[in-house]
């Protein structure tokens, strides 16, 4: 039984990793080697493709832009979602269920639907091509998600803790910051991970709302297509570099992430 399990899991992990290995493999090859014939590992190992990215500002600024709006979005989402999730986990109030459902529908709305009005909206208030515009647009699906996950974690904290703190004379803000937030630290970590993840991988809105100054890396990558064909090596190197930030973030939350995937209890 356990052997069978290992084989199944092994095969699946292989299936996951081989395409990524292929990308990594290509990023260390020169274009002549890539197009010359199929090699399973780089024969003429080269870092030139990475050099192109790290020396050209229009390339590495793409990464900085992406990281900037992703972090901004994570901070905004967490800040507004924390009190809201507390309200949903502790109180019943007028229209709470409908409000919760309405929030979730925004997580489910196809970004394509909002593409055009977003463009118009952010242009009209002068935020087009800024990081904050992308961060705000990503809030549309990240805030509901953050509320959803945080609510699950908060419901796991016994209510007696709140009551004791109020009896001890804590005001709500003081209780919330000093006692409650440390209690759900792992939940906040996991939520930040999810916000980071969904903002980092989204391209459609990010590309539509930016042109030059806040252009995300994913949009910069289309530059590798030129009249002389696609620059496969640089494209692969850029792809590899987009995987790294995510790996870094998941490393920090690796011990809590299984719990986070429980996504509350709806």
């Amino acid at each position: 039984m356990t052997l069978r399990k290992k084989v199944v899991l092994g095969l699946y992990v292989l299936f996951l990793l081989v395409p990524i290995y292929w990308l990594l493999n290509m990023s260390f090859k020169s274009n002549t080697e890539i197009l010359g014939g199929l090699t399973l590992w780089p024969h003429g190992f080269t870092l030139d493709n990475y050099k192109v990215i790290f020396t050209d500002p229009s390339w590495y600024e793409g990464y900085l832009n992406s990281l900037y709006y992703v972090c901004l979005n994570t901070v905004i989402s967490l800040t507004v979602a924390l009190p809201a999730a507390y309200a949903f986990s502790r109180y019943r109030f007028l229209g709470d269920k409908h409000l919760f459902f309405w929030l979730l529908t925004n997580r489910m709305a196809p970004p394509a639907v909002f593409l055009l009005p977003f463009f118009q909206l952010y242009s009209s208030i002068g935020l087009f091509d800024t990081h904050i515009a992308v961060a705000l647009a990503h809030c549309l699906f990240n805030v509901p998600l953050a509320v959803w996950i945080l609510e699950g974690f908060m419901s796991g904290v016994p209510k007696e803790i709140d009551e004791t703190a109020y009896i001890d004379g804590y005001s709500f803000p003081k209780f919330f910051v000093k006692i409650f937030i440390p209690l759900i630290g792992s939940g906040i970590g996991v939520t930040a991970f999810f916000c980071f993840m969904f903002s980092w991988v989204e391209l459609l809105l990010a590309r539509t709302l930016t042109s030059v100054d806040a252009k995300p890396i994913a949009a910069v990558m289309t530059r590798t297509v030129s009249a002389s064909g696609i620059d496969w090596g640089v494209l692969a190197a850029a792809g590899v570099l987009t995987i790294l930030p995510g790996m870094l973030v998941i490393w920090f939350v690796r011990n809590h992430v299984a719990k986070g995937f429980a996504l509350g209890r709806v």
């Binding site: 996951l16 990524i20 292929w22 990308l23 494209l235 792809g239 987009t242 995987i243 995510g246």
Partner: peptide
């Protein structure tokens, strides 16, 4: 962590990976 890797790759890069592969 290995399982989570594909989830963390920007969607256009997912397309690129398979385009190449």
């Amino acid at each position: 962590i290995v399982l989570a890797i594909p989830l963390l790759i920007p969607w256009n890069v997912v397309g690129t990976i398979w385009q190449i592969f």
